[in-house]
């Protein structure tokens, strides 16, 4: 948050970074090859999903089921495009709507749950939705659905989806900006800090939580729809992949929950790392991913702010602590 008097200097820095980012992303169509374009598209997708998670995350509620809405969007687009010849953009809009509707329907009772109970309930919803979709005849059961492949050159297809994801991210960014930087941001932070006390100063906590959950679900729905068309094939395993819940969560956490740019930065860093892991340690890429999660939690629990504040000091501190505790003459198991 930083407060309203957050400092002009920080504003200038952010604007500069934003400008450079915009130039790089805007010109990518000119300089990037297909591989880079695909990587950028993936980063953008995760950036949008991380922003989506971050909306409810700002209230302190941790959803472990966002992939449910991603999957609903993906399946809506797949079914509408293959069976009803609906255009992609319209299908994605409907997917977003359905995802948000589901979020509001399940969120209304579930957002009364606190802490771990809410997290597990959302996880349960995601798994239940996957199981149900995997059993539906018109959703292709476990076999999945093949979508129409765009009739264009391969490079054009890459460019198309790059632009689509870029637009989704910009939309999510605009929405996040309006929500987090305005008076709404204070309501969300108040809910995070103390929900009862927030009610006592007139904040309609239920409405805020529900609308954030719904807005996040809508972004997930659009993202999932774009993903389905992009991959041109989905099945329950890929459309409801738990990593699609986990990675955005981790990205938002790394970047700073409740901040505007944090999820974007987190998505950039983690996806580049994940891609590096994927290409260099194919067999161990999940190990690398897991190690990344452990390291983030242990060393940068406050997100990138911790990275900037001399992580090596923290590292040294932890190592010294470990040595003192386990390296000395004391029996280590005591």
């Amino acid at each position: 948050m930083g407060g309203l008097a957050g400092g002009v200097r920080r504003g200038v820095t952010v604007a500069l970074v934003g400008l450079v980012g915009a130039v790089v992303l805007g010109s990518a169509l000119l300089w990037a090859n297909n591989y880079v374009l695909r990587l950028l598209t993936t980063i953008l997708m995760y950036a949008a999903l991380a922003q989506a998670w971050n909306l409810l995350g700002a209230t302190g509620y941790v959803s472990f089921g966002n992939v449910a809405f991603f999957g609903i969007g993906a399946y809506t687009v797949a079914i509408l495009m293959t069976r009803f010849d609906v255009a992609f953009v319209a299908a994605a809009a409907i997917g977003a709507f359905l995802a948000a509707a589901l979020a509001v329907a399940v969120g209304f009772p579930m957002l009364r749950l606190k802490g771990h109970y809410f997290a597990i309930a959302t996880l349960g919803v995601a798994e239940a939705v996957r199981e149900i979709v995997g059993n539906l005849e018109f959703a292709g059961k476990g076999k999945g659905i093949s979508l129409p492949v765009m009739d264009a050159e391969i490079t054009e297809i890459y460019q198309y989806f790059y632009i689509v994801m870029l637009l989704i991210v910009l939309g999510a960014l605009l929405a996040s900006h309006l929500i987090l930087s305005g008076r709404a941001g204070y309501a969300l932070v108040a809910i995070r800090e103390d929900e009862d006390a927030a009610q006592m100063v007139g904040i309609n906590t239920t409405a805020w939580k529900l609308s954030m959950f719904g807005a996040g679900a809508a972004i997930n729905g659009v993202g999932g729809g774009a993903y389905a068309y992009w991959m041109s094939y989905i099945d329950p395993v890929s459309a409801f992949n738990f990593l699609v819940t986990l990675m955005p969560l981790l990205m938002a956490l790394l970047g700073g929950v409740g901040t505007l740019w944090g999820p974007l930065a987190g998505a950039l860093i983690l996806e580049v790392l994940a891609e590096t892991a994927w290409s260099h340690f194919l067999e161990f890429h999940r190990t690398v991913l897991g190690a990344m999660m452990v390291l983030v939690v242990l060393f940068f629990p406050g997100g990138l702010r911790d990275v900037i504040h001399l992580p090596q000091a923290r590292l040294v501190g932890i190592l010294r602590d470990l040595l003192r505790r386990y390296g000395g003459a004391r029996r280590w198991w005591c």
């Binding site: 941790v62 472990f64 802490g115 771990h116 997290a119 986990l246 969560l249 981790l250 956490l253 161990f284 890429h285 999940r286 190990t287 991913l289 897991g290 190690a291 990344m292 999660m293 452990v294 983030v296 939690v297 242990l298 629990p301």
Partner: peptide, 17 residues
């Protein structure tokens, strides 16, 4: 609260891998 979830999820990825 969710830090432990992420930490143990990371360990799980490593172990399963």
């Amino acid at each position: 609260l969710f830090m432990a979830i992420i930490l143990t999820q990371g360990l799980t990825l490593i172990a399963v891998n």
